[in-house]
Amino acid sequence: MKYKIETTDLNAYFDEAHILKDINLKIPEKTVTSLIGPSGCGKSTFIRTLNRMNDLIDTFKMNGTVTLDDEDIYDSKFDVVELRTRIGMVFQKPNPFPKSIFDNVSYGLTVHGMNDKDRIRERVEESLKAAVLWDEVKDKLDKSAMGLSGGQQQRLCIARTIAVNPEVILMDEPCSALDPISTTKIEDLIHELKKEYTIIIVTHNMQQATRVSKHTAFFLHGEIVERGLTDKLFIEPEDKRTEDYITGRFG
């Protein structure tokens, strides 16, 4: 099994607060890995550490290593812009730009220097098809993205993410603001995307973790309590804390 991302003795702090404690985790390539745990356990901080989004916060400090294809992403020589191209992110609430559907998807391409209009149009279509949105929006690409439903907006955000051809997609509770039908569509989409991309998803929905991911890691108080195959972790957890959490008896 090839590992796409690997963290070694990763510690993260906001001011004096020790948020992540000695996180050692290997993320297999082209699979879905779920991160579960109660609010405030460090899941979101962890995935934001993977594409250096926490760097934007003044009080953030970290030590340990995070590698992408064996390259240390916190090495001073590592290009952060390139990193964010290789590791895309989808957020909890759909956040399309107040622009047209077409512009939302093409935005990343133009920012990264693509000028060929035919190539951009081609890539937008590919991305919208990959995000299973093309059939719903192909006749209104010039319409505002804000007019789409929540589920469509989230798939548009995924299309925007995959337009720049990333290797890894981070998803921070991508379905928490969506209805069950939109959630099913996103989950089906994740199932398709894993053939091409390495996906890491933060979720509070235990059933979603079991449905979409092959591997799961359970975070608690900034530490990883248990990790492994999702089926095993949800049916035969080894740690009592994992069992208490996933069965809703935590606390």
Binding site: Q207, P237, E243, I246, T247
Partner: peptide, 9 residues
């Protein structure tokens, strides 16, 4: 209740 772990078993 979509049981897991001990409850499911």
């Amino acid at each position: 209740h979509q049981l897991v772990a001990k409850d499911l078993r």
